[in-house]
Design a binder for these strands. Structure first.
Length: 103
DNA sequence: GGAACGGCTAAGG
DNA sequence: GCCTTAGCCGTTC
């Protein structure tokens, strides 16, 4: 309701249930832009609300956390996910177990 | 208005 | 399992 694509991303990501994660491609797909996974990343990268928008719940299509604040923040992402109940393994999570099936 | 960048994805080696 | 190449999209300078 905002207007920009990024805003929509924040909305969906903030809607992700706790203890679960989603992929960039899924978010993009959920908004009608399955090819805009990158755009989603670009949006989250500019994430003006790092707390309202649990960008740490956004992982790669393979379950890899991807990045987070540049790289040094990635470990923090793992910590956050673990704190929510998501078992992160080597910077990766079991999408088949934590990936949100539907937003 | 145009160019460059980025937290991607899929496929191949 | 990891790295490379090619394609797509939106934001930002």
């Amino acid at each position: 309701v905002s207007g920009t694509f990024a805003d929509r991303v924040y909305e969906l990501v903030s809607r992700v249930p706790e203890g679960k994660v989603t992929t960039y491609g899924d978010i993009a797909k959920a908004m009608g832009r399955p090819r805009a996974a990158r755009a989603v990343g670009a949006a989250l990268r500019a994430n003006p609300h790092p707390i309202v928008v649990p960008c740490h719940r956004a992982v790669m299509a393979d379950g890899k956390l991807g990045g987070y604040g540049g790289g040094s923040g990635t470990p923090k992402k793992v910590k956050l996910l673990r704190g929510e109940g998501v078992a992160v393994k080597d910077g990766r999570v079991d999408l088949s177990k934590y990936r949100v099936r539907k937003l």
